[in-house]
Simulated scan of single mutants.
Amino acid sequence: MTIKEQQDAIISDFEMFTDWMDKYEYIIQLGKDLPIIEEQYKTDDNLIRGCQSKVWLHADYKDGKLFFSADSDALITKGLVSLVIQALNGQPAKDIAEAELYFIEKIGLRSHLSPTRSNGLLAMIKQIKLYAVAYQLKSSQN
């Protein structure tokens, strides 16, 4: 699936819920279902700066595509990083670097997050895009 298709699937999933408490429960469940980052990657280098909670994000580059694993010490934050990973995981670095993540606005997430959580979400996206740019440059030099 493309990034657009993944985002459209996320939007479709959220359309099933009319109440924001149900949406939060779903986000928390996504966090619980997120494959845990290997303990060796829970380092300061993989901590996302700008998040109030601790969020670790690791990227692997295989066959021209980026694969992410993550963890957080806060359930809702873990769910948020899970959503972003769901939209971008397994995609080419160039596509990730250029992606516009419209699903955040479409599911109403931006207006339902506290300013600190919203900043944390932006920091996660920024870090993923930085990984994508770095891997793009690295692969163009090979």
Rank of each mutant, 00 (worst) to 15 (best):
Q40G: 00
Q40D: 09
Y41Q: 13
K42W: 00
K42E: 11
T43N: 01
T43S: 08
T43A: 02
T43C: 02
D45Q: 13
D45S: 09
N46H: 09
L47F: 10
L47P: 06
R49W: 01
G50I: 10
C51Y: 07
Q52H: 11
S53T: 12
S53N: 04
S53D: 02
K54M: 13
V55F: 05
W56L: 09
L57Y: 04
L57I: 14
L57N: 02
L57K: 07
L57E: 01
L57W: 02
H58K: 15
A59E: 08
D60G: 09
Y61E: 13
Y61V: 01
K62G: 00
K62I: 14
K62A: 10
G64W: 02
G64K: 08
K65P: 00
F67P: 08
F68R: 03
S69G: 12
A70G: 09
A70H: 05
S72A: 14
S72W: 03
D73G: 05
D73E: 07
A74F: 07
A74R: 05
A74V: 14
A74S: 13
A74P: 11
A74M: 06
L75S: 11
L75I: 00
I76C: 06
I76M: 12
I76W: 02
T77W: 00
T77Q: 04
K78E: 04
K78G: 11
G79I: 04
G79P: 06
G79L: 02
G79E: 02
L80D: 10
L80E: 06
L80R: 10
L80M: 14
V81L: 02
S82E: 03
S82I: 05
S82D: 00
L83V: 05
L83F: 08
L83A: 09
L83C: 10
Q86T: 15
Q86R: 15
Q86D: 13
Q86A: 15
A87L: 04
L88W: 02
N89I: 10
N89Q: 09
G90T: 09
G90C: 12
G90I: 13
A93D: 14
A93Q: 09
A93I: 12
A93C: 14
A93E: 12
A93W: 08
K94A: 14
D95S: 15
I96N: 07
